[in-house]
Amino acid sequence: TTYYDVLGVKPNATQEELKKAYRKLALKYHPDKNPNEGEKFKQISQAYEVLSDAKKRELYDKGGE
């Protein structure tokens, strides 16, 4: 599973699309609303952290993490 899959976006997604997808999923899986989905929330946050940063995203796209 790639970070793009976690957020449900395509690899060519814009920053705005990433932000929108992250917010939607973060609300859905937030531990306050969904106590059993803490791990999913962490995955979503990690994916967004990497993909929202241009340098980290470039490194990730080249095969790094």
Results as ranks from 00 to 15, higher is better:
33 K>F: 15
28 K>C: 08
65 E>S: 12
18 L>C: 03
16 E>C: 09
5 D>K: 06
16 E>N: 07
35 P>R: 08
39 E>T: 06
2 T>P: 04
55 K>Q: 10
19 K>W: 15
10 K>Q: 12
41 F>T: 02
25 L>H: 03
22 Y>P: 00
43 Q>W: 09
41 F>N: 02
46 Q>V: 12
3 Y>G: 01
30 H>F: 06
1 T>N: 14
10 K>F: 08
34 N>C: 09
49 E>V: 05
5 D>G: 05
29 Y>K: 01
21 A>G: 02
46 Q>K: 14
55 K>W: 08
2 T>I: 05
51 L>F: 01
32 D>Q: 08
12 N>H: 10
1 T>A: 12
16 E>H: 08
36 N>C: 11
55 K>V: 15
43 Q>L: 13
47 A>R: 00
14 T>K: 05
20 K>H: 10
16 E>M: 08
33 K>W: 10
38 G>N: 12
56 K>S: 13
63 G>I: 12
48 Y>L: 03
39 E>H: 08
8 G>W: 03
14 T>C: 04
7 L>W: 00
45 S>Y: 11
27 L>N: 13
48 Y>F: 11
33 K>R: 14
37 E>D: 12
39 E>P: 06
32 D>F: 07
41 F>M: 06
65 E>T: 14
28 K>G: 05
45 S>W: 13
56 K>L: 14
61 D>P: 04
18 L>A: 01
51 L>K: 00
64 G>H: 13
35 P>D: 07
10 K>V: 07
55 K>E: 10
3 Y>V: 02
62 K>F: 07
3 Y>K: 02
40 K>Y: 11
52 S>Y: 06
10 K>I: 04
7 L>H: 00
36 N>K: 10
44 I>Q: 01
21 A>V: 05
55 K>I: 12
64 G>L: 15
29 Y>S: 03
22 Y>W: 08
14 T>A: 04
56 K>H: 06
46 Q>C: 10
16 E>G: 08
35 P>A: 07
16 E>F: 05
24 K>S: 12
28 K>N: 06
8 G>Q: 07
25 L>M: 05
25 L>S: 03
6 V>I: 15
8 G>L: 05
7 L>Q: 00
27 L>F: 10
57 R>G: 03
6 V>F: 06
58 E>W: 06
1 T>W: 13
17 E>V: 05
50 V>A: 06
63 G>S: 12
37 E>P: 05
43 Q>R: 08
45 S>M: 14
34 N>F: 09
62 K>W: 06
38 G>T: 14
18 L>N: 00
39 E>R: 07
24 K>V: 10
59 L>Y: 09
51 L>G: 00
33 K>M: 13
44 I>D: 00
17 E>G: 04
37 E>A: 11
48 Y>G: 02
20 K>S: 14
